[in-house]
Design a protein around this nucleic acid. Structure first.
Lengths: 235, 235
DNA sequence: GCAAAAGTGTTGTGTCTACACCCATGT
DNA sequence: ACATGGGTGTAGACACAACACTTTTGC
């Protein structure tokens, strides 16, 4: 139990902001200057203010760390309530997953930096497990939605997209099959332009873009799906 | 904005408790005796008490309505924070999905009853949309997990299970294919016993049970899945 | 021509739906 | 015998992975 358990808990919002940087999935963290967990890294966030929604709260706190307009996606994860999760007070935390496209490099305050999710520093509170929960949500949704749009620049080649997916998913991805899956699902479209070849030659890749930046479920993986004459093919 | 917006919100937990009753999916509701929304139906739940986790809170509030031991499953849904969601106060609500096996018929207080999800009465607050969100979560998880265990009695025939799935999913389900899908996924096992025939004859059905009552993801629907030599077949 | 990178063709596999057919029981 | 439901066999649809092969570029 907390040292202080008042009748009313405090409420904070926390965000797992992820971006693929230098080929690996990284998370935005800041280093605590005060107890508790002085010197440890922590997720950005803070107290809920009067009259705010939780989403407004996390956006406001993130604004102190990054330009919030650079967030390509934001969704709620879990609300944590273990009375012992903060040593100082009874504190609820509603966690969010945020994503930043790989071509942006936000200005950060001095105490804030990106850290690799696969090699996290020591994190305070329960923030380590929150980061992993965020990564799992991302991985799942990459598989059955068009969430890739939130990791990618506006335009990209299939190889570049493959590298983003590989970094986020943590395993190799075949460019060949990635292209076919996303085109068949009508998630990608060709821009008509092509990227210039690299210095060592090679065929220049076509540039693609995501058809929409609204989250859509593209593979409803609906096993046990409704009976009936095959679903209408896309026009 | 609420009439009263204090610096600290109150926090409630609410549960969408679902059960298949008489062939249809129903939700546990109680009828409000006081303003706001006097006479309207509402989800069970209530204020978070000092030192409780959210899950302890919703279990405690449900205990006033049903025997909590009859809950076969309980999981967190979303935390709602719109300042206008309650007319009286600034109130956060963390919502849960609860499930009750179809063979139980809990004793209920006089103000509490089951209502069909497909034909809801007038609900107070934002509880109508919460019920639908709970139903969607159930439908999705029936498809790719073994969550059926939480709707079904300990033992059942495939036809009985088919009827439960059909009621929960809202469309016909083929007993033939349901059996094969769940057996292949190793979710069901045969008990060896059989049900007696009905009055009008017919072959008696074999009795099955779920292999486990722990939630498991049985179809990881992992499109874009890791490369490699085919996953090891079940022994 | 040769290396490098992008993209297509093709085959095979796993998982599901649909539907015909067979099985076991009561009357 | 026949009706009533339970259960199996089998064929086809579909989406994907794997991999060989072709195309387009730089040097």
């Amino acid at each position: 139990m907390s040292e202080v358990t008042s009748a009313h808990p405090t409420h904070v919002t926390l965000a797992v902001v992820l971006q693929v940087r230098r080929g690996e999935l990284q998370v935005l963290l800041w280093q605590r200057a005060r107890e508790p967990f002085r010197g440890a890294w922590a997720l950005p966030g803070g107290y809920l203010s009067a009259g705010e929604t939780l989403e407004q709260s996390i956006r406001a706190h993130l604004a102190a760390k990054v330009d919030v307009r650079e967030l390509s996606h934001l969704e709620q994860l879990e609300t944590l309530s273990d009375p012992d999760r903060s040593p100082k007070e009874w504190q609820l935390a509603t966690t969010y997953l945020g994503l930043v496209p790989s071509d942006l490099d936000p200005e950060l305050p001095g105490d804030t930096d990106w850290q690799p999710v696969d090699d996290l520093p020591r994190l305070g509170f329960d923030h380590g497990s929150i980061v992993l929960a965020g990564r799992e949500r991302l991985r799942a949704k990459l598989s059955y939605t068009n969430l890739g749009f939130a990791l990618a620049p506006a335009e990209f080649t299939i190889s570049e997209l493959r590298d983003l997916y590989a970094a986020a998913l943590g395993h190799d991805v075949s460019a060949t099959n990635l292209q076919r899956v996303l085109l068949r699902r009508d998630v990608l479209e060709q821009t008509g332009r092509r990227r210039a070849s690299g210095p060592s030659g090679g065929r220049p890749g076509s540039l693609f873009r995501f058809r929409t930046s609204e989250l859509e479920i593209t593979d409803q993986f609906a096993v046990l799906r409704p009976p009936g004459p095959a679903r209408v093919p896309v026009a």
